[in-house]
Design a protein around this nucleic acid. Structure first.
Lengths: 132, 132
DNA sequence: ATGAAGGTTCTAGCCGCTATAGGGTCAAGC
DNA sequence: GCTTGACCCTATAGCGGCTAGAACCTTCAT
């Protein structure tokens, strides 16, 4: 017999805020199986698993749109795996591109930080560098 | 004699969109020196320099709030340089922290990408890994 | 029956823009 | 002087992924 839990219990079980769960619902990612007469959302283990899935995927930096696609694919055992691969692959490319940008930024900020030994803005090489 | 330019000319000169310049104005970063009778914004070299400053600072990933602080400091020759340093330093720390996160993400995504040789979702290790 | 804890919807805000609508202004050519 | 077309104006809404708040309703233990 499956137990039904409220949004607060689901939130606790998945370390996700209740508002966020409702937001995911509005984005079409996860819905309650039913509601109480008073309108409280009720969930089962299936939704808990789904939320854990979402959480993991979000930790990989995937957009909610990508997560939604993955959930759709996961629901269909016969779906071709290629689409899953390409979502992951594209994310990897985005991450690598962002890494490059950030490494460049780090170098630049590090250089800037080194170069200022002044007391006042008048002699500050950082301000000078930004003003060129 | 200083020449006055319109927002479009300023936009071209600084490679910033006119809408963005107006947005910066609403955020208190840069204002026109005056307006035409018809209400057109007019700028001088000073504003052009200010926009170039903003652009450079934004390329370092600084928030508009930080840029605003830097502009304020840059305006005062006698301001102590320490505040400038700390804005840069904190940004460097943020960048380094983000770099760590992204490197972790890259490893994880790379691992995921390697591990799936399946045809369908039923055997897909990626989906499995996300579902645990 | 009551009160606390938790639930509901709706709206607005965050950042840094971008897009759209519906208008007004400017300078040049006729 | 008039028209044209490029440019400008304000105001509003949207993006993503939440978060916060108001005003109200439900549930459950006592």
């Amino acid at each position: 017999m499956e137990s039904r839990i409220t949004i607060g219990q689901l939130a606790k079980a998945t370390d996700t805020k209740a508002v966020t769960i409702r937001y995911y619902e509005s984005a079409g990612l996860v819905s309650p199986v039913t509601r109480t007469e008073g309108g409280y959302r009720l969930y089962t283990d299936r939704e808990r698993d789904r939320l854990i899935f979402i959480k993991r995927a979000r930790l990989l930096g995937l957009s909610l749109e990508d997560v939604k696609s993955l959930l759709g694919l996961a629901d269909d055992e016969n779906a071709p795996c290629g689409q899953v691969d390409s979502i992951i692959h594209e994310q990897l490319e985005r991450v690598r591109s962002r890494l490059k940008d950030l490494q460049q930024l780090e170098r630049e900020l590090d250089r800037l930080e080194q170069c200022c030994q002044a007391d006042t803005v008048a002699d500050c090489k950082i301000i000078e560098s930004l003003s060129q």
